[in-house]
Computed example of a mutant assay.
Amino acid sequence: MKTIRRLAGDESAAPPLFPAPARQPAPLSRGNVIFLVGFFLGLAVLVVGNLVHVPFAIMSPGPTMNTLGEVPGEADGTSLISIDGLPTYEAEGELSFTTVSVLGGPGYPVDAFDVLWAWIDPSQDVLPVDEVFDPEASEERIAEENAIQMEGSQEEATAVALRALGQKVTTHIAIVEILDDSRARDALRPGDRIVRVGDTKATTADSVRGALQAVRPGEEIEVEVTRSGKQVVADVPTTAGAEGRTALGVLLQLDYDFPATVTINAGDVGGPSAGLMFALGVYDKLTPDSLTNGRDVAGTGTIADDGAVGPIGGIKQKMAGARSGGSEYFLAPRDNCPEVVGNVPAGLEVFAVDSFAEATRAVEGIASGRTSSLGRC
């Protein structure tokens, strides 16, 4: 009888006499089942939350820009405010305008997770999108309106600053855009300066609107304009505007004759809310002494032709952005005080102003360290 000898290390020398039974997979425990169900449910919620857009707008703090400095990101060191035709001076410190980042409008939809995160973050606000944007306006239309408002705020800021320095500035009422449904398209042009409407001299946009009420919507009215330096008189068809009032179907803004060329490079920022800080920046660059004395002052507010400072949106986000940008002082429109109270970031002093003259006094007080008499919210 032969002896079969198995050599050590040679597992293939002889097969086992009785093969081991096949191993059956162990059943999932209750805990594993719950984990897997939860995992796939969470994955589904994550996918849906990122795909489903919701009708909200999110307002977040945006960057600040120093009107006394250079345009951020420009390699050639372009000044944010440049002036030709009048002596300018080096300005110390910062006079920064603040911005708000808004998501949720046309072209920038938000999803459920964006909204959830914004609700958690105290520096952000969530609003119904229709409260922030015209529901009928397109992305292009909103951008166009913001650009028009920004241009207007820069012009008015320049006028206010130059007048405060004793310079002569002549004001005109100009057509900036003719609306698609306007019947005046064949008679008027963008850039026309309105001299009179009917028998009324055009001194303000309100004077133009008031003069139009002398005729019924659809009737013609005589309008005199200056176009490329020449006087043009035309019988212009009117249309029905808001609340059935007679209108021309045009957008108006103030236009000026300045004694100097002032260029403000604000990048892609739109809207009118930087007007106050533009005016302070132009004023500081045209005065020999530093308005801030090296202090870091930020602020916001619209500016009107008469120097009045108006309220803006997103004041909470703008204060947060100013503090994140290093500012210790902030100028806020007085009409925004109800929103300022309770939302001021630690380390930021806020002063309430309602005119350019008051804002100038506030910055001078900050510069000298005498702020006890300045207005606050």
Rank of each mutant, 00 (worst) to 15 (best):
F35D: 11
P72Y: 01
T88R: 10
P61I: 04
V47W: 07
S82Q: 06
A44V: 14
V37W: 07
V52P: 10
S79M: 10
S60W: 10
I81T: 06
E70S: 13
V47R: 06
N50W: 11
S79L: 10
G49A: 15
G73R: 03
A91S: 05
V47K: 05
T67C: 03
V54S: 00
V48A: 13
V47S: 06
L36Y: 15
V54A: 00
E90K: 14
A57C: 01
P72N: 01
I83V: 05
P61K: 06
L36A: 13
G69L: 04
G85M: 11
T78H: 02
Y89D: 02
V45M: 12
L36F: 15
A91C: 05
V52R: 15
A57Q: 00
G73F: 02
V45H: 06
E74N: 11
D76P: 05
L86M: 07
S60M: 12
S60V: 08
M65S: 13
L68Q: 04
A44Y: 11
G42Q: 04
I34K: 13
P63Q: 12
A91T: 08
F40T: 07
Y89C: 02
I34F: 14
P87A: 13
I81P: 04
T78F: 05
L86G: 03
A44T: 14
V45N: 06
T67I: 04
L46M: 12
F40W: 11
F39K: 07
T88I: 12
P72R: 00
T64D: 04
L41D: 10
L51H: 12
T88K: 12
T64S: 08
F56V: 08
G42R: 06
M65D: 10
V37F: 09
L86R: 09
G38K: 02
L51M: 13
A57H: 01
S82Y: 07
V45I: 15
I58Q: 05
F56L: 11
L36I: 15
G38E: 01
G77Q: 01
G85I: 13
V48G: 06
V71T: 02
S79F: 08
S79K: 10
L41M: 11
D76I: 04
G85K: 15
T67D: 01
L41E: 09
V48L: 10
D84L: 11
L80A: 06
S79R: 12
L36T: 15
M59N: 14
M59A: 15
L41R: 08
P72G: 00
I81V: 07
L80I: 05
A91H: 05
V47F: 07
T78D: 01
L51S: 12
T88L: 09
S79G: 09
L43I: 09
I83S: 04
V54I: 03
T67G: 02
V45F: 12
